[in-house]
Write a protein that binds this DNA or RNA. Structure first.
Lengths: 249, 249
DNA sequence: GCATATTCACGCAAATTTCACACATTACAC
DNA sequence: GTGTAATGTGTGAAATTTGCGTGAATATGC
């Protein structure tokens, strides 16, 4: 085994107590550092503190279901997620995978296969980690800030947005769109890219959606929506937001 | 009209002719750039030339079986690999995953699930690509630079152009034309070539378009449009831009 | 019923296409 | 050499098409 000596951290989000105990035991026996939690709401808090290298996620959860948890997590974390579900329906799988899951196993599953897929996910994550470190790392900032004190601030972890110092409420789709732009600040994202990432792969031609939501965002964020400071259009190509302010020292 | 969303490249290694044709058709219909090949020995050669972003791999192949191909590929490539196999035995799955495969689907599989898992793999790969670019700074970002500090700079990744230190706005067609020239800097591109690549194969005779857009570009980029420094004409042949500056040491 | 998402149609601005013509360069004749 | 046609190139400005912002109407879900 040529892996680093540091234990990989696995967060296990599972409703069923028996299954939870089983996974906990098996994973710990393989030398992983495991935390288990029962419902989605707690899982979000725990994920922020624990910073897992991998998440095992049951889809049917109390308080906050698996897919919602996944979406929340993906707003600020790229940790791989393996879904463990009792449902074998194709549309559910496709949806989960498109919303950011890395793998999907149907219960009952083979323990050895699960372990193999865990190794795959951790192997990938470790690879990108190594690439980043060798290239001169720059961790993704958990906050986008632009335009100084009375400018625009997006806090990915808290899912909150401030404009001109005021907290602004955004609907889920509005927030997702803004996130996508803010995470690629300074780069023009094409209509296709935005539609695919926010609405999914079947909506790549629905330019009307984009226009509508861009308008909503501008109404809520821009001092003067007719002359955008943050949400710029590149005619015939797509949209972009300015690169973030240089962090002060 | 050319919308330059670069297609993802998929290599499909599959024994069965019918399945191969099916995958080829379905993937092409989704806008991927696909190459298909019948056996493992040829697949290795093709992978080296084609440089796929993703490999779909059948396990049972003539001349060189799937797992051997996978091991050979992994000696020099990190491209994600999805196994498509008729075998559902757990030990085979585990072995394939541990030898470097990223996913494993058992035939018969649902097309939509395969497509979703293809998207997952490509999404991951693209993410690490993006992280590398932002971390490695401009070192590996493709850029055309010519004429020193107050010269011409084209940043292909950000779709931005600077001339004489000033950011310049280009329309889609203007940008596409400049890109085509900058990508082949130092080489004269004929009228036909340029028209074909920017406007499409039906416009090879529309020399007026070229003249108009060359003029627009010169107005925006050249200090003195009447005496071009960057956008030169080869009388009776076509246009070209000078070779890029030698990278400083 | 309220908040959110989807869909539609119109006016305006930007980008592309099209046109008429001026200016160069080459080729050939004388 | 000079003159002249032929071809190719640069120019300005119209006509046309396309894309975006907008308000508002209609679904959908809690």
């Amino acid at each position: 085994m040529t892996t680093s000596d540091k234990k990989s951290r696995i967060l296990c989000v599972e409703d069923d107590a028996q299954m939870r105990a089983f996974l906990l035991a098996q994973l710990k026996a393989r030398g992983y550092y495991v935390q288990a939690v029962r419902d989605g709401a707690h899982a979000i808090d725990l994920a922020a503190i624990f910073e897992p290298d991998l998440v095992l996620l049951d889809l049917s959860l109390p308080t906050l279901d698996g897919l919602s948890f996944l979406r929340r997590l993906r707003e600020w974390s790229r940790s791989p997620v393996i879904i463990l579900s009792a449902h074998d329906e194709e549309p559910v799988k496709v949806k989960a995978l498109d919303q950011g899951a890395d793998d999907y196993l149907t219960k009952p599953f083979s323990l050895n296969e699960l372990l193999a897929r865990v190794r795959v996910a951790l192997r990938r994550a470790e690879e990108t980690e190594r690439l980043l470190n060798s290239a001169g790392k720059e961790a993704q900032r958990p906050i986008y800030r632009c335009g100084g004190e009375d400018g625009l601030v997006v806090d990915f972890a808290h899912r909150s947005v401030r404009a001109a110092g005021q907290e602004v409420h955004l609907t889920p789709t509005e927030y997702d769109l803004l996130c996508e732009l803010a995470r690629n600040a300074g780069k023009v994202l094409t209509h296709r890219e935005l539609l695919q990432r926010v609405w999914g792969p079947d909506y790549q031609a629905e330019n009307t959606y984009l226009r509508t939501f861009v308008r909503h965002l501008r109404r809520k964020l821009e001092p003067d929506p007719a002359q955008p400071r943050f949400l710029h259009n590149e005619l015939g190509v797509g949209y972009f937001v300015p690169p973030p302010d240089a962090p002060e020292l």
